[in-house]
Design a protein around this nucleic acid. Structure first.
Length: 304
DNA sequence: AAGTCGGGGCG
DNA sequence: CGCCCAGACTT
């Protein structure tokens, strides 16, 4: 892929500067006010918000984030908290392993970075629960650095405006990386504004289901709109009922039971699905393996 | 590259 | 009832 480096910048697929200006201007007028975007937000608060927002909508994160930051305002606070309390505070945000990793992340920050969130993508990427997207987002939004941020919103906007397609591929492809890199403004301050602005555009206007193209600041530059907004070919239909999905549901039910009591007898958990106690056992086994539950004889409880 | 991992709301 | 949501991690 080294040959790509010889391609002149002007040939790379990118949104024109006029489009970038339009999106940034729209953001200045239309951005939601979110607490982790306020001036008083700390890098740790921004990091916490990014973890909570992984696969979880903003409206559901808001109340949890406020409570969380009031209870554990610094990495050191979360590092010292009882894990059971952490999991209860996570409540029903989903994917509770994120809560476990967030506490591990806090402990790593205390241990390896003297309690302060590191600012480079490389250091961030090395922390538990922080992947490519979150490392770039924290570097950009918490530290004002130039980073190629590519969440589901940004990917959708770029694929539509530049490639003229309705939705991005399931995985973040090399072609999409090229679009993200080529469009990212060279100047640092402008790159940070662009990342925030295009993400917000994807969340509010260029949405997955019913995009509000009539309100879109880059409609004039949008290849998808120009092409008549063609629909992507439908995915292959689900072969059977999603049976694995029910395992996730059962894990959620077990976690809910554990959050509601100090300890729960195994027979009580098995009663969660009288039709299929083997499934409950299997799910309990994966929760124990994940460190989300502990077993003490016949009693199950959250990790203390 | 594909599977797994929650939970809720919307079309 | 299927899809979507500021993804990460394992295999």
């Amino acid at each position: 892929m080294r040959y790509r480096l010889r391609v002149p910048d002007s040939a790379l697929p990118r949104l024109p500067d006029a489009g970038i200006d339009a999106v940034i201007g729209w953001f200045a007028r239309s951005a939601r006010s979110l607490p982790w975007r306020e001036d008083d937000a700390t890098p740790w608060g921004i990091l916490v918000s990014e973890i909570m927002l992984q696969q979880t909508p903003v409206v559901r994160v808001l109340p949890r984030w406020r409570q969380w930051m009031a209870q554990w305002p610094t990495p050191a606070d979360l590092a010292e908290a009882p894990t059971a309390e952490v999991l209860r505070a996570w409540d029903r945000l989903g994917y509770p392993r994120r809560a476990l990793r967030l506490q591990e992340c806090a402990r790593a920050i205390v241990r390896e970075h003297a309690g302060r969130v590191p600012g480079t993508q490389e250091e961030l990427r090395a922390l538990p629960g922080i992947g490519e997207y979150t490392a770039a987002a924290v570097a950009a939004f918490a530290f004002g650095r130039r980073a190629a941020v590519a969440d589901t919103n940004i990917r959708r906007v770029l694929v539509r405006t530049i490639a003229g397609e309705q939705r991005p591929a399931p995985s973040y492809t090399a072609r999409e990386r090229a679009m993200t890199q080529a469009t990212l403004p060279d100047e640092t301050e402008r790159s940070v504004l662009w990342n925030q602005a295009v993400m917000e555009l994807g969340a509010l206007v260029c949405t997955a289901r019913s995009p509000q193209c009539g309100l879109c600041p880059v409609r004039a530059h949008c290849a998808w709109d120009r092409a008549g907004r063609p629909e992507a070919p439908a995915d292959a239909p689900r072969r059977t009922q999603r049976f694995e999905g029910t395992d996730r549901q059962m894990r959620g039910r077990i976690m809910a039971a554990l959050r509601s009591a100090d300890q729960v007898p195994v027979p009580l958990l098995l009663a969660l699905d009288p039709e299929d106690p083997a499934r409950v056992r299997r799910c309990l086994g994966t929760l124990l393996a994940d460190g989300l539950a502990m077993r003490d004889g016949d009693l199950v409880h959250l990790p203390r």
